[in-house]
Design a protein around this nucleic acid. Structure first.
Length: 200
DNA sequence: GTACCGATGTTCT
DNA sequence: GAACATCGGTACC
């Protein structure tokens, strides 16, 4: 069962928690890569100084964040890596959830080929926002993609019990008082979380 | 295990 | 021209 608008239209913090444990599906050449979402971060424009859409800053890059919840917001960071976000809330409310870590459930060999790294550890394939985008071939071509109706990238339900850890977001030192907000969420004791918190 | 460093390109000032 | 929601390698403990 795919997630529908009722889920995506929640605010960015509720959505970040709701997405944990759900299954992200990427279709490439008739192969289905399935990954469990294990780590997320909320970005809440216009108030959040860490958010690209702080003060409702609407540019070519941030445009998708202003769309209705349920689209993919993908941008290039440090000139090299893409980051996948899920747009939350209603139209003109620029909120999004960054996917920071996923646990592969299928097509491990495909992921290894796409990543092409020396490490043999499975967790190194997808335990970071740039890594998982490379592994799943998520590029800016999918920016603005409709996760509710599209076939190449979408999210499905998954019922599972787990404990959620709340932590500070990563690498947003410039965000002043907003850098200490506990807007990062992850599944406790999961190996595919990019960075453990000291309170874990 | 931690620490630093360079790669790289788009966006916005 | 600077900043950037990162990563992988190397050099050290």
């Amino acid at each position: 069962m795919r997630l529908g608008t009722d889920v995506y239209k929640q605010d960015g913090i509720k959505l970040a928690k709701d997405l944990l444990g759900k299954i992200l599906v990427r279709k490439i050449d008739d192969r289905l890569i399935k990954c469990k979402i294990v780590e997320t971060e909320s970005y809440i424009g216009p108030e959040d100084k860490g958010c690209h859409a702080y003060k409702n800053k609407r540019t070519k890059r941030t445009e998708v964040m202003f769309w209705e919840g349920g689209h993919a917001y993908i941008y290039l960071i440090y000139g090299m890596y893409n980051c996948l976000n899920i747009v939350a809330n209603c139209k003109d409310k620029p909120e999004a959830v960054l996917i920071r870590g996923v646990e592969p459930l299928s097509e491990i060999e495909t992921l290894k080929e796409k990543r092409n790294i020396k490490s043999n550890k499975i967790e190194d394939l997808t335990n970071g926002p740039g890594k998982l985008c490379k592994a799943l071939e998520i590029t800016k071509e999918l920016n603005g993609y409709d996760l509710i109706h599209g076939d190449e990238l979408y999210i499905v339900e998954n019922d599972e019990e787990f404990e959620i850890v709340e932590a500070k977001r990563i690498n947003i030192d410039y965000a002043q008082e907003y850098k200490d907000k506990l807007w990062r969420f992850y599944i406790k004791n999961n190996k595919f979380v990019s960075k453990k918190s000291s309170t874990d």
